[in-house]
């Protein structure tokens, strides 16, 4: 199987500060990969490489090869809008638009050229079903998204990302602002979604990484210390630093 994301010798600098050092990694399609490590280790910087979100930060420079779905995404002439359509993102705090539940999803579809009303309605329902939210909101689609609970808002954001039909979803601590029940729902959702999507998730919650991911990458001080099968990482980590981190002995 061919990896859907490949990075080779990737370095990332914020001005003089080197946040990522020679990162090599291959992420397979339809898997969940968790990026773990203490604050400032570079995991979020690494995640944001895949949809070029780091471009928005002043003073960032990047070297190395980053290939997404067979395309070198930092080459000249790359269509960043098309890239971000392919690589969706869900953030730490739910950030629905100040619109109705329906419009939160329909908006992105319209921006992407879908004009047929029936088609939009179908897509809205399908995306909400995929995000395990349809049953809870089907009778209040015209209500403001802000009336939903935090967990529901986050699932709405996931539905919004899914509506654009990405092949990859990046999640930056998607459940860290949620209560345990909502967190469990998001985790189950991630487990379901990997059938159709490739998911890369940054999490500070070690148990969450264990529960949801197939592969885990441990970052420390900008270096990729260990990357492998989550079962292996959580039962027989090869590196002492990984062991110390996952057992809570530092970080």
């Amino acid at each position: 199987m061919t990896p859907i994301i490949t990075t080779r010798f990737v370095n990332l600098f914020y001005n003089e500060f080197q946040a990522l050092k020679n990162i090599n990694m291959a992420i397979m399609p339809n898997t969940v990969t968790a990026l773990i490590g203490p604050s400032g280790c570079g995991k979020s910087s690494y995640l944001r490489l895949f949809n070029r979100m780091n471009d928005l930060i002043d003073g960032v420079s990047i070297t190395g090869d980053i290939m997404v779905d067979g395309e070198m995404i930092y080459s000249k002439g790359i269509d960043i809008v098309a890239l971000r359509r392919k690589v969706g993102m869900v953030f730490q705090k739910p950030n629905p638009f100040p619109k109705t539940i329906f419009e939160n999803i329909a908006y992105g579809l319209r921006v992407n050229g879908v004009t047929d009303k029936k088609r939009i309605e179908e897509k809205v329902e399908f995306s909400l079903q995929q995000a395990a939210l349809w049953e809870e909101v089907k009778d209040k689609l015209k209500k403001s998204a802000f009336e939903l609970s935090g967990g529901q808002q986050q699932r709405l954001c996931i539905a919004r990302a899914l509506a654009i039909e990405p092949s990859i979803i990046l999640m930056d601590e998607p459940a860290s602002a949620l209560d345990p029940i909502s967190t469990a729902k998001i985790e189950e959702l991630i487990y379901e979604l990997k059938r159709n999507y490739t998911i890369v998730i940054v999490t500070h919650n070690m148990q969450q990484a264990g529960r949801v991911s197939d592969y885990t990458a441990f970052f420390y001080l900008g270096e990729l210390i260990e990357f492998g099968d989550t079962k292996e990482i959580f039962t027989h980590p090869k590196d002492k630093k990984t062991q110390n981190y996952i057992t809570g002995r530092f970080g």
Binding site: Q207, G210, R211, T230, K231, F234, T235
Partner: peptide, 9 residues
């Protein structure tokens, strides 16, 4: 069993 302990607590 080891995996379930380690991954799912």
């Amino acid at each position: 069993c080891e995996n379930i302990f380690a991954l799912f607590n």
